[in-house]
Simulated assay, not measured.
Amino acid sequence: MGGRAHDELDRLASAVALTGAGLDDIGDFAGATYDYHAANPELGRLLQWEGLARGPAADVARRSTHYREKVNRFAQAQRDGVLDAGLDAAHLVFALIALAAWWQTVPQLAEMITGASGDDPGEHDRRRAFVVKAARRLAAAR
């Protein structure tokens, strides 16, 4: 992957920084991730290309550190009883990113399933609201 891909992946990591670990923050995190992917649909293609290339990830050390920080915050919230402790914290972070990003990565599939285009502002708002609500429900303490 070239320098542009590295730059874009770095921008994503900065744009969706997790500011806390409460349920509202997790919903906000998922919403911010959705917003970033909606504004930068080429990112999904870059991530898919990175996966297809099967080579080393772009800037793996810095990106890993960034995501491990999120995992650690989620794990702390689990220990504090704020989040469902029965979920693997790393898998939860990954699932929330996938939940938020996949709408832009496979827009044709999303339209086939929902019957609505993501280009429609109302549909965009409904999808974002779903992502936020689903993230909060998924992570809620049991």
Score class of each variant (00 low, 15 high):
V93R: 01
T105E: 04
A129T: 15
A32I: 04
A58L: 10
D119V: 01
A89R: 11
L87R: 09
L47S: 08
E111Y: 00
G81D: 14
P121R: 06
L87Y: 03
L83C: 07
D80G: 01
A129M: 06
K70E: 13
G44H: 10
G81E: 12
D35M: 08
A129C: 04
P56F: 07
D84K: 07
Q108C: 01
K133S: 14
A38H: 14
A135M: 05
W103I: 03
W103H: 11
F74W: 14
D84N: 15
A101C: 07
A101P: 01
F130V: 00
Q104H: 07
F94D: 14
N40A: 11
V71D: 08
D59I: 01
A129R: 12
A85S: 13
W49R: 15
F74V: 15
E50C: 06
D120N: 12
V93G: 00
Y67H: 13
G86M: 12
F29K: 04
R63I: 09
R127M: 08
V106Y: 02
A129N: 07
F74T: 13
D88N: 13
V60N: 14
E111T: 09
A57T: 15
A58M: 07
D88M: 01
Q76L: 14
P121H: 06
L96W: 04
L96T: 11
A53D: 13
R128T: 04
K133L: 12
G31R: 08
K70R: 15
S117C: 01
A58E: 08
F29A: 08
D125M: 04
D35S: 09
F130M: 07
H124E: 03
A98M: 11
N40S: 12
H66M: 13
A129Y: 03
A110L: 04
E42F: 00
R45M: 03
F130Q: 07
P41A: 02
R128Y: 00
G122H: 02
